[in-house]
Design a protein around this nucleic acid. Structure first.
Lengths: 252, 252
DNA sequence: CAATGTGAAGTAATTCACAGCG
DNA sequence: CGCTGTGAATTACTTCACATTG
């Protein structure tokens, strides 16, 4: 295959890099904190520190959104909060459904970070009839039979899957068939979806495994190079690597 | 602890790209599934499909680990499972502590994906005295006062923070002071840690926000350009952003 | 001035495409 | 042959460094 692949058009107008999009929520969180403390303006340096990234990166990121800063001054916190929110689509209401109300599903339903950012839990859905009607986070759990109806009536386009791995694909198929076009998957499975549907996954054990890799590496290096004079560099982080300071991997 | 026990074969795995490391758990999961179905060998094409990545990428990734495949045949499933496990450090036992046994902490404690991959929940810790002694996932919750003792006695080097945001940094500091060098942070805060400590974060609302961004973009394009040029394959995304591959055909 | 915004340079990750081996 | 393993080409992301501007 690989014949006749659609070229990505060179149109740059709205092409915000994926890496930048992934950092916008981070900036938003830092800005919200500043806003709550009534800080009026912030420099790229300060905001970058608060978000845990490097300031040049932050300025470059913002440059994709437009010129929202003032030279010699910095950024207006409130204005930037609004601009980023708008860019992320958080100025509108996003009804979401959570399917699979086990421990994780319940945790998600109770998670405050959703409501505060434009996400509204429209319904909780579980396959267990015993769960039906039981309130979780103040919302009564509904049976899977109602799934299509719920999606339709609430205009849900984002679904969260927190079921066991075995049920995930099936649930996913039903969600998609009912009109959901974005899925956040917590089940440890690769979901197959038709074109035009976005899937993001969060795998709790994957993150731990990545930590274990670095942990093992640390132990190994400690044994080998007891010289220890590790480069005092990098207060930077984030993006993909470990959030904290990456132990100078590069210069060998 | 973290004594220099030379438990390390002369692997010359110096400098495996971070992006590759992040995918190894993915491959491992797919391979484990194949192993359970007693599939003896697998081609890069097949495994790539199962893991949701492209086959060239997968082969390149494996090439950093060594030459574990057989030309004309593929990879031996069992052997590859072992090699990746070893590379990730999963052939050893990793005692972890989970701090903050709310909904999320309980979900994590119950999460099967940990135990099956070399992670052992050594202790559950919570600041609420009322929780103390209560068993969650069969493990009695202990009070925060015991934190240092638990870390020390169990040789814990990986900690999971599932506390509210306000308590996270404080808990982090104590974990680090007690000897923890890798932290998985579920609290929506940027943690500051000394050099040599790794932090990875999982922010549930960030993932949703990224989905919202793409969702919004979808809606906008649908309205603007009704020209539907078929794009590429199915799910090729995972790790980072959604593939989408939406041709942003829109003049400025 | 001080701090943004951005070309240019540098680095990392992905994909291509095919030599070479079993 | 089929499929791996990998240089080379490509694309994406980051960082530098400084001209520009309020």
């Amino acid at each position: 295959m690989a014949t006749g692949r659609t070229h990505r058009p060179a149109t740059r107008s709205r092409g915000i890099p994926e890496a930048t999009v992934a950092r916008l929520p981070l900036y938003l969180r830092a800005l919200t904190a500043l806003s709550e403390r009534s800080v009026p303006t912030v420099s790229s340096e300060e905001l970058a520190a608060a978000a845990g990234v490097n300031s040049a990166k932050l300025r470059k990121d913002f440059s994709y959104l437009g010129s929202y800063g003032t030279r010699g001054v910095g950024y207006d916190v409130e204005y930037l909060v609004y601009q980023i929110s708008r860019e992320l689509g958080l100025t509108q209401d996003w009804p979401v459904v959570i399917v699979g109300i086990g421990n994780l599903g319940a945790a998600l339903a109770n998670y405050g970070g959703f409501a505060s950012r434009g996400f509204r839990v429209a319904a909780l859905i579980d396959a267990d009839p015993a769960m039906a009607g039981k309130p979780v986070a103040g919302i009564p759990v509904q049976h899977t039979d109602e799934l299509e109806k719920i999606i339709d009536e609430n205009g849900v386009s984002i679904g969260v899957i927190a079921t066991p791995a075995g049920a995930a694909q099936q649930v996913c198929d039903r969600l998609v068939a009912a009109g959901v076009t974005s899925i956040l998957n917590f089940a440890p499975t690769v979901l197959t979806v038709p074109d035009g549907v976005d899937v993001r996954k969060v795998d709790l054990s994957i993150e731990l495994q990545i930590l274990a890799f670095h942990e093992q590496r640390k132990a190994g290096e400690e044994a080998e190079a007891q010289a220890g004079a590790a480069a005092s560099a990098a207060q930077e982080n984030n993006g993909k690597g470990p959030d904290g300071d990456v132990p100078a991997v590069m210069p060998a």
